[in-house]
Design a protein around this nucleic acid. Structure first.
Lengths: 254, 254
DNA sequence: TCCACCCTATTTGTTTGACAAATTTCTACC
DNA sequence: GGTAGAAATTTGTCAAACAAATAGGGTGGA
């Protein structure tokens, strides 16, 4: 029958498009599909799986949203397996965290506490594992004059990201990045506080601790840096009332 | 009028189904849609948005995959806004972490280091914030005799989850849960080591520290507990060869 | 009265076939 | 040889229907 290659095995996902999703995921996990590989055109895929194109598309769109696939039009286009580098995961996490904040399933305090729990050890690990190249990058950031020009967030986020990379822990880096990006989005939504110079000084302290491979000192300075930053942000971001959802938003819902 | 309500505003998402996705997301973020709310049937949605049903469905399937919506068939069925409690995020994270491990974009060592970085502070916070009820639950777990009966993982995961909840930080709890679930899946895939009794003893030590509200001690015992567990797992889980992907999987891919 | 069964209504799930839009490649013309 | 336009390829969107699942109501029987 050649078709119906999806319907073998697992019975858990009853719906066709879910079967296709797991089919493709397994193909990637098991190495049958590698990052960068191009999938057959939707029409061919549908035919070879014995299903219709809309059904295939539902599966593809889901995997696209999950940052597993990527598609574009044209002869050179098609659907490709995305390199799985965790950046997509961080994006998703960032979206989710923002949403949780919006819906009050998360408080600013929890967010900042989590940031501290992750970034303080990260700084310590970076102090132990940093390479000469990491140091060079950090030095470049600290000595950059962008601290004044821009939102004061470009150097900050790259500084912290570089430390995360220097720690050589990609999972904590991912967590850190998603939290940091969320905070950055918040900072942009409300006014961004002027803490540039202070931030720059503190960055220098952290850098020097990492330079000296002084784990404890790196942790302490990072901790102080974050506490200071939290103070600033807590005042800038307005407290959400328990229900301010009653604001007019040109509602058409009926 | 009734149609085209999607096409206003932002130009970033050019594709129709993406516009619908952000449309619904914004409706949730802004409070126009609450968890538990039921969306109109797909046909009505399509008509009121001025698009076709397959397009609407692509958007809905994506939001379903993102754990934002949920749908079922039948008269009482339909598409509903999911209560946004972070459990879905943890699920997604768990999947992603597993995938990253499979593709060697993450090592076991990184995973366990991250676990330590998160759970050690978590234990400390729990020691400070625990309530009488938290203590009661923990006590129940420790004194349970399931440590011998089952996989030895049921009590473990509930114990750690309870501590996470006692810390009152939902973001770190979410991270912790996703890591823990990933490790549990690994443990089930390979044989699960027999470390039950030791685990139970260590749990008791952690519990007592939390009981006494001794933050430092709680952290230390958690740290030791995790280090011990890591030793066991590192030996149980085989190191992945750089390519063992060449195993036959009844491949039909042409 | 009560219960089991079927029948119907509602909603998502899936199929078919077509056309539109985007994008690259090929080709003809200058 | 270069450039503009036509053709080919692939995803994006549309339309109308049928299939499957599920809940509720109605009917018949005990």
């Amino acid at each position: 029958m050649a078709k119906g290659s999806v319907s073998d095995g697992a019975r858990k996902p009853r719906k066709t498009y879910e079967q296709i999703i797991t089919h493709i995921r397994e193909a990637i996990s098991s190495g049958k599909l590698h990052p960068g590989d191009r999938l057959p055109p939707e029409v061919d895929l549908a035919r070879s799986l014995g299903v219709s194109r809309p059904t295939v598309r539902e599966a593809l769109k889901v995997l696209e949203a999950l940052n597993v696939l990527e598609s574009s039009t044209g002869p050179t286009g098609g659907t490709f397996v995305k390199p799985l580098d965790g950046a997509g995961v961080a994006d998703y996490l960032m979206d989710s965290i923002s949403l949780l904040l919006d819906v009050q399933e998360l408080t600013l305090e929890e967010l900042w506490t989590a940031r501290g729990a992750i970034e303080v050890p990260l700084a310590g690990m970076a102090a132990l594992k940093r390479t000469e190249q990491d140091l060079a990058v950090l030095r470049g950031i600290i000595e950059s004059d962008e601290y004044r020009d821009f939102h004061a967030y470009f150097p900050d986020i790259t500084f912290h990201t570089t430390i995360a990379e220097a720690s050589r822990n990609r999972l904590l880096s991912l967590f850190m990045l998603s939290i940091h990006t969320t905070i950055k989005a918040l900072a942009e939504r409300y006014v961004l506080p002027e803490a540039k110079q202070v931030s720059q000084d503190q960055h220098r302290l952290i850098y020097e601790a990492i330079l000296d491979q002084d784990e404890a000192l790196a942790r302490r300075h990072m901790k102080e840096h974050l506490q200071m930053a939290y103070e600033v942000y807590r005042e800038a971001v307005p407290k959400k009332d328990t229900d301010e959802a009653t604001k007019e938003v040109s509602g058409d819902n009926a």
